[in-house]
Amino acid sequence: MSFPVIDFHCDVLSKMREDSNIAFEDGAELDVTYERMRQGNVMLQCFAMYLPESWGIPRYEFVLDQIDAFKTRVMPAGEGMRWLKWKEDAEELEKASKAPNGPLHLPWGMLSVEGADGFEGNLYYVRMCYELGVRFLGITWNYANWAADGVLEQRNGGFTEKGKKLIELANETGLLLDVSHLSEAGFWELTERTVRPFIASHSNAKAVCNHPRNLTDDQIRAIVAMNGRIGMTFVPWFVRAKGEGAVPVRPEELLPHIEHICSLGGENSLMIGSDFDGIDSWIEGLEHSGKYPDFAELLCRHYPEGTVRKWFSGNALSYLTAYLPKKAL
């Protein structure tokens, strides 16, 4: 069983920056490749730009390097890909996804930044990245940066003064914000300052698995209330706590997270944010993007087909068509 898939988070680009020999078309080093996207019917993949601590002090050039990798090594792979930047692109994709003649001819890609660290506190760099086609910004990774505190920062602070200006810039341009790594204090501050609903691109339910990167019930309710989105993620230790049994995590263990988010009103807010290529262990049976048909078959044993389609792509598409900026005249 195969449904069109939108995945809001993978870390392919940081791997490709570290190794210039990795081929996106079919590289064995990658969870997400062009061939696996076609195999899994992934019609849109969001490529995050992550700056690992091993690279040293975060610099803007590291972001530019990954944009270049996206343009020169990802987009031309296979038969080619299309770059999603605008509301009109999302509307075209939505129309194509409903066509009766099978998978899209070409998949699409879009860009996000995971953590504002690489902008070096320079809002001009942020604006430039928006002009270069970046459409989503995860404000922090796990720790504090110049804009806000991350979810593992013990003081649990909110936004700095410059971070508040970052929110203003996002409100002005249409850059969409992602709270998956943001501190709880920052989360609640952002709910008061944003003019557009935000997303948690790759987080599960904390009530099911008590990991700091998962969302509390109140956070889930807030995202649902603002018409934001939550990307269920395949990080094994966000699905089941480490140490709870020696057997591998199975796809069935995502079901309690889905049930819990839906019990809080999240059926129309749930989407996918795999975190492929950002992990070094995998859910057994969900190791790469070619496995989505198997996951769809599992979910359709428990939920109506129309509901599964929403989680695989419909909810993400409705968000993109509603909140991406329009092309400038």
Rank of each mutant, 00 (worst) to 15 (best):
L182I: 02
K15R: 15
A316Q: 01
W146Q: 05
K291I: 00
T140C: 04
K95Y: 14
T194V: 10
E18D: 15
A205G: 06
E79V: 13
E29R: 05
E61S: 13
E94D: 06
T140A: 00
A90Y: 00
T33D: 12
E184V: 03
E287R: 09
C209H: 02
C10P: 04
T173R: 09
N41W: 12
P212W: 10
K164H: 10
W282C: 08
S97A: 13
D19H: 15
S269R: 01
V42P: 00
A96L: 07
K310M: 10
R213S: 07
K206D: 13
M16Q: 04
P107N: 14
W311D: 00
E53H: 08
M110C: 08
G109S: 00
E91G: 03
L298V: 06
E25G: 03
F238I: 07
F119I: 10
L177M: 09
R309D: 13
P4Q: 11
G174S: 08
L270H: 04
S180D: 00
F295Y: 15
E94M: 04
M1S: 06
V247K: 07
P248N: 12
S281R: 14
I199A: 08
D19C: 14
E161Q: 06
S2R: 13
L176S: 03
R221D: 12
F234G: 05
L44N: 02
V249Q: 04
N145M: 01
M43D: 03
S318I: 00
N315W: 06
A144F: 02
P4N: 13
W55Y: 10
N204I: 09
I6Y: 03
W146P: 05
T72N: 14
N156T: 11
T173D: 06
V126Q: 05
E94A: 07
T321R: 12
E172R: 12
F295K: 08
T160A: 08
P304N: 10
L84M: 13
G115F: 01
E29P: 04
A316M: 04
G186N: 00
I223Y: 05
N41H: 15
G56T: 13
D89W: 05
C209N: 04
A77N: 12
R82F: 07
L175E: 05
H257S: 05
K98E: 09
L190C: 09
E53R: 10
L182G: 00
P100M: 14
G138P: 01
S183R: 00
M43Q: 07
N204M: 11
R240K: 15
Y34T: 09
K98A: 11
G40H: 01
P197D: 08
R301T: 09
L255H: 12
D280T: 13
K95F: 14
A207M: 11
D178H: 02
G158M: 05
Q219S: 07
E192T: 11
R59Q: 14
E61T: 11
V208C: 10
G158I: 04
E305N: 06
T321P: 07
M232V: 08
S14E: 04
G121I: 05
G290V: 11
W141A: 04
M1H: 02
S180Y: 01
Y34W: 15
I230C: 02
G278S: 12
E91M: 10
V308Y: 06
I57D: 12
P293Q: 05
D178Q: 01
N315L: 12
A90K: 04
A296H: 04
N101T: 08
I223Q: 01
M75V: 15
W83C: 02
L30E: 02
L106N: 13
G138H: 00
L254A: 03
